[in-house]
Design a protein around this nucleic acid. Structure first.
Lengths: 146, 146
DNA sequence: ACTGAAAGTACCACGAG
DNA sequence: CTCGTGGTACTTTCAGT
């Protein structure tokens, strides 16, 4: 990943459907040259894919929360992943060093659904307690990775 | 947004560079019909854009944190957005109902940079205190909206 | 540089209101 | 009759080698 690759990546983050020719004219390369670089970055895992950015409200996703989880003792990251990933409303999860042990991002259609998800997480394993923050307004969110 | 639109959106979330013909064969429409629907959803704001999914490590983004902000009194969402959005390391920000007043997602190249960002947020306005959680491992994150 | 495929556009057909 | 939506045909541009 040199400077040109980073320029290409920046362009693709701003417009994931940009044509290779368009990107090329921005970075001073021909379309095939850009394609070869993009292919290489996909193969190497630097680019993991392309996606559409959707207004969550359009999918009925109107309620959103961040939930901290406090565990009783140590729980492995892989076990956590295995228990959280099957829950479709959990759109992201991280283990952290700080007060809580993990942070979970939940998106749902309403508050009752959030509560169900939180209870489902609590049932499982060695959860000592949870602490939820309901999102009032999404100020902004920049496109990134996955 | 009818059922067909949701199918198209699902397809585009899985592959943001899928061709209209390919999507059409999945949902039983011709390529131009799909294009018209996509154009309409972009115009209406249901689809806000397309982006590449990048491995953060490939950009040097190896350190990540969630920072809670506690304010002294009320601060408007618009003021918060105005103060946080210019900081490039802040990749997402939400006002919440819960213990903190806001949650901020920070990505940086190292811990020192995280600290700088937190201090910069503290300087501003009526921040009473902050509480940070450093991400140890990203368990997973599903592609969504912005 | 070249070939096949996709994007994009124009125009017509059909059904619901 | 009109509006919305889909299809086909065609041109231009892009992808892929």
């Amino acid at each position: 990943m040199d400077a040109v690759d980073r320029e290409i990546v920046g362009h693709l983050m701003r417009d994931g459907r940009a044509t290779f020719a368009e990107i090329g004219s921005g970075v001073g390369l021909s379309a095939p040259a850009v394609k070869r670089r993009v292919d290489r970055m996909r193969a190497s895992g630097h680019i993991t894919g392309f996606t559409a950015l959707i207004d969550p409200a359009a999918l009925g996703w109107t309620t959103e929360a961040y939930v901290e989880i406090y565990y009783d003792g140590n729980v492995s990251a892989t076990e956590l992943k295995r228990s959280l990933e099957p829950i479709p409303q959990v759109v992201g999860a991280w283990t952290v060093a700080g007060n809580p042990d993990a942070i979970v991002h939940v998106m749902a259609t309403n508050m009752a659904e959030i509560e169900q998800v939180v209870e489902r997480m609590r049932e499982h394993a060695r959860v000592e307690r949870t602490r939820s923050a309901i999102v009032m307004s999404r100020l902004f969110e920049r496109p990134r990775s996955r």
